[in-house]
Design a protein around this nucleic acid. Structure first.
Length: 103
DNA sequence: TCCTTGACGGAGA
DNA sequence: ATCTCCGCCAAGG
């Protein structure tokens, strides 16, 4: 059997993030067994098909912010998905203390 | 092949 | 809170 690609490990972790919770890129990398490879997570998510079932929107950066320009449509799409599950943004930031996933 | 980019992050100052 | 520097490394030019 072959080793799962790093993308597969990342997909696996993202799929486990529960509704109403968020995880940071670094946290996903860590849980996927890829410490210090937060960028690999961002890269992987950027390559997901538009119709993916993966809850990519539950992944935010360590500052508790959405990693897209606040004036982009991508930013809006993610913010709306999050608010739909009860995650609120205060001054553009999510309070990790309240919403971060603790597996 | 070399150089730059990038859905990032932590340590310092 | 803000900024810089550095680590990481796949992809694209």
């Amino acid at each position: 059997m072959q080793e799962p690609s790093y993308q597969e490990k990342i997909w696996q972790v993202v799929a486990m993030i529960p509704e109403g919770k968020v995880a940071t890129y670094g946290q996903v990398a860590e849980l996927a067994g890829l410490p210090r490879m937060a960028r690999a997570v961002g890269r992987t998510l950027s390559q997901l098909p538009k119709d993916t079932q993966l809850p990519w929107f539950r992944v935010i950066n360590a500052q508790g912010k959405i990693s897209f320009p606040s004036d982009s449509s991508a930013y809006l799409r993610q913010r709306e998905r999050l608010e739909q599950e009860g995650i609120s943004l205060i001054n553009g930031k999510i309070r990790l203390k309240d919403y971060q996933w603790n597996p």
